[in-house]
Design a protein around this nucleic acid. Sequence first.
DNA 1: TTATATGCAAAACATTTGCACTTGA
DNA 2: TCAAGTGCAAATGTTTTGCATATAA
Lengths: 137, 137
Amino acid sequence: MVVNRIEQKCIQKGLRMTEQRKVIAQVLSSSHDHPDAEKLYRRSNAINNSISLATIYRTLKLFSNNGILEKHEFKDGKSRYETVYKDHHDHLIDIETGKVIEFQDEEIEKLQEKIANKLGYNIINHRLEIYAVKKNK
Amino acid sequence: MVVNRIEQKCIQKGLRMTEQRKVIAQVLSSSHDHPDAEKLYRRSNAINNSISLATIYRTLKLFSNNGILEKHEFKDGKSRYETVYKDHHDHLIDIETGKVIEFQDEEIEKLQEKIANKLGYNIINHRLEIYAVKKNK
DNA sequence: TTATATGCAAAACATTTGCACTTGA
DNA sequence: TCAAGTGCAAATGTTTTGCATATAA
């Protein structure tokens, strides 16, 4: 199996590459949506059924802590994950389908900096999510 | 007891005003922070100890569904509630103290409209949270 | 009167953890 | 070799729910 992008990052970070992590890395690399733990479990388990849900959670946390994944908590109860090899972006969530659209807007970023600054704060992180429905239906 | 602002809204919406709801309405009216269910339970229970946590949750949901409260899920695990008699605003959360600062910025609102529009969507809702630390410490 | 609300305890749900066993380097 | 990772099942923390009882209108 060709070493995928996420596995590369793991090696680079010095993480021990177990069979399970390789599979999870592979699944994440080929997932272009924003899957939750359960979905990742099902996808991974289909490849290697010796992968438990506990390991999925432990691995997701490990990858997040190492900046390999980003964890999002949209308003649907469960956390969802996304690989980070893109530039920073925010999310628009289609509340009818659950589909996530990524967008970025430099102006909004700058405005946030300005606001925090005015309030006497330095931004560590932010979350901007737009919940919306398709037009013209 | 003087009828408080939230109770007024309940009456206006035709909600049945039970003893419990009156107490919870009173507690919410005088809470100027962003309390979670547990905190509201403790405050309400201190006034009338026949109020259960289940009723707190049921009442919070009722009030949210009637546009009397807003439910926020910041990144601290538990939902927090806020009365809505203010204009729309977003939140800056001090990640060291948990303190919540409200802000509003017309420009950011407009930009979001523009973005959603460009993507072919109508905004139903949005969430903008800035997680930050105090400057000059 | 009676539809609705409540308290209680049990359930639900996503996520975490203790422990004995396995494995990667 | 052995520190680190894993599966399993039990525990966790927040929120929800079934049911018998109580209450507002």
